[in-house]
Design a protein around this nucleic acid. Structure first.
Lengths: 217, 217
DNA sequence: GGATGTGAATGCATTCACAGCA
DNA sequence: TGCTGTGAATGCATTCACATCC
C-alpha cells in the first residue's frame, strides 16, 4: 500500500499507540488487545486494528498484540528505529529548552549541530556543541549528513532560515515560529505554534455553547 | 447551530486563518478573498468559505472579507477577544521558555501564577511573579479566577498535577508532558508532545509525502 | 472464550457548482 | 466581472459485524 493512501489522522494515532506501548513495556506488560490499547487513549478497538492494518498484520488472534514486537514495528514504520541527526537553529529560550527536552533522545533524535543568526552568540559552547554561524550551515549539514532541522527563531527570521535550510540540503523542518513557511516541494514542514494551542484550548473550553449566526437562517 | 457539530479540522484551520489575517493587517491589507486566503495556506477557496460559514456570514459578495472585521469575528469565535489568565505549573527549561514566548500575550493569554512541585524553587521570583508551592494552587486559582493552566512538569508528575488542577477548578489544560492525562469530563485537555512532532516529521520524510500544510493535530 | 483482520455500511469532511448579490 | 454562501455530490475516515484463528 502506498503511504499516501494512509489517513494522516491514523499516522498521528500511531505515535500515541507507540507512546502508550512504551509505557506498558516499562510496566512489564507483554501483550495488549486492541480494545485495551484503544480505551487507554480514547479510541475504539476497531480504530486501533484498522490503523495498524494499513501497515501489516502485527496481531495474534486470541492473544492481542505483543508489546515489544509492536513497538519495534511502529518504530520502523515511523522511521525512528535508527537515530536521526538534527540541527537546531535559534538558541533563544525555546531553543535551549528543546535541547534539554527529555524524550528527544529516547525517541531517536540526536542534536548534531546548533546555529544562531545572532553573531554575539556564535562560538559559545552549548553542551558539547559550539554555536555556529548560519554561514556554516551548508558545510556542516553536508559533512554530518544532517537531513532534519528545527526552526526556533523569531517569526521575522523564520522564512529566511527555512530557505537556507532547504538550500543546504535539509529535507524536513520542525517549525516553532508562528508563520507559514514556503519551502520547495521536496522539503517537509511540520509546524508547532504554541500560542495557537492555547487558542484552540480556549475554543474547546466553550464547546456546547450555542453559536449564533448573523442574519436569519 | 451547536458548536460541537463543527468539524475539528475546521476549528484548527480557523486559527491559521486568524494568524494569516493578522499578518495581512500588519501589511495594511484591508480585504481578502477566500481564494487568496486559502492559497496562502494551502487550502481551497471553498474550504475557507465553508469553514467560516459554520459560524456565520462574514463576507461581502464581490469584495471578499474585510480583514479587520474577520479578525474580530474569529477572535470572538475562538474566545480570545478577551484576556485569559493562565497558571503555569513546572518551571523547568520548557516552562521558563513558555513564559517568555512572544505571542502568548499578543494572542490574549496572560501568565497569572506560577507553581512548582520542587520546594527548592518555591519563593524565587519569576519575572513579576513568585513561584508558589502546589499547595497554594486551589486558593490562588480561586482568588484570581483562573480557568486555564499549563502543565510543564516531567511525565511522572503530570497526572498528579493535572488531578490537582481539576480539583482546584481549572477547566482547560495545555499539557506538554508526553503522557495521556485522565481528567473529569468537564475539563478539556490539549496536548503537545514535542518529541512526537519529530516522530511525525520522520514518517513524512520517509514515506508519506502527503502534503498537509501546517499539520493538523 | 477471546482475539485479529477486513469487506461492507455508515457517517463525516471536503469539493463542486451555481444562484444571488455588489 | 468578482465574489460569497450553500445545497448536492463526492470522497475519505470510522465503525460495524463477522469469518477466521489461537
Amino acid at each position: 500500500m502506498k503511504s499516501d493512501d494512509i489517513p494522516s489522522p491514523a499516522v498521528h494515532r500511531l505515535s500515541f499507540y507507540l507512546r502508550q506501548l512504551e509505557t506498558l513495556q516499562r510496566l512489564d506488560r507483554h501483550t495488549i488487545s486492541s480494545r485495551q490499547l484503544g480505551e487507554s487513549l480514547g479510541y475504539t478497538d476497531a480504530q486501533v486494528r484498522r490503523d495498524l492494518a494499513y501497515f501489516g498484520q502485527f496481531g495474534h488472534p486470541g492473544i492481542g498484540y505483543r508489546v515489544e514486537e509492536l513497538i519495534n514495528q511502529l518504530r520502523k514504520i515511523l522511521g525512528t528505529d535508527k537515530v536521526w541527526d538534527v540541527a537546531l537553529v535559534g538558541v533563544g529560550n525555546l531553543g535551549r529548552a528543546l535541547t534539554t527536552y527529555r524524550g528527544f533522545l529516547s525517541k531517536g533524535f540526536r542534536l548534531a549541530a546548533v546555529f544562531d543568526t545572532d553573531a554575539a552568540k556564535v562560538g559559545r559552547k552549548f553542551g558539547e556543541l559550539e554555536i555556529q554561524p548560519m554561514a556554516a550551515l551548508p558545510q556542516t549539514v553536508q559533512e554530518k549528513q544532517i537531513r532534519m532541522a528545527i526552526v526556533a527563531v523569531p517569526p521575522e527570521a523564520a522564512q529566511d532560515v527555512a530557505s537556507q535550510m532547504a538550500a543546504a540540503g535539509i529535507r524536513g523542518i520542525l517549525n516553532f515560529a508562528p508563520v507559514s513557511l514556503n519551502v520547495p516541494a521536496d522539503v517537509v514542514v511540520q509546524s508547532v505554534d504554541l500560542a495557537l494551542q492555547l487558542e484552540q484550548l480556549s475554543f474547546r473550553m466553550s464547546l456546547g455553547r450555542t453559536v449564533e449566526p448573523f442574519g436569519l437562517s
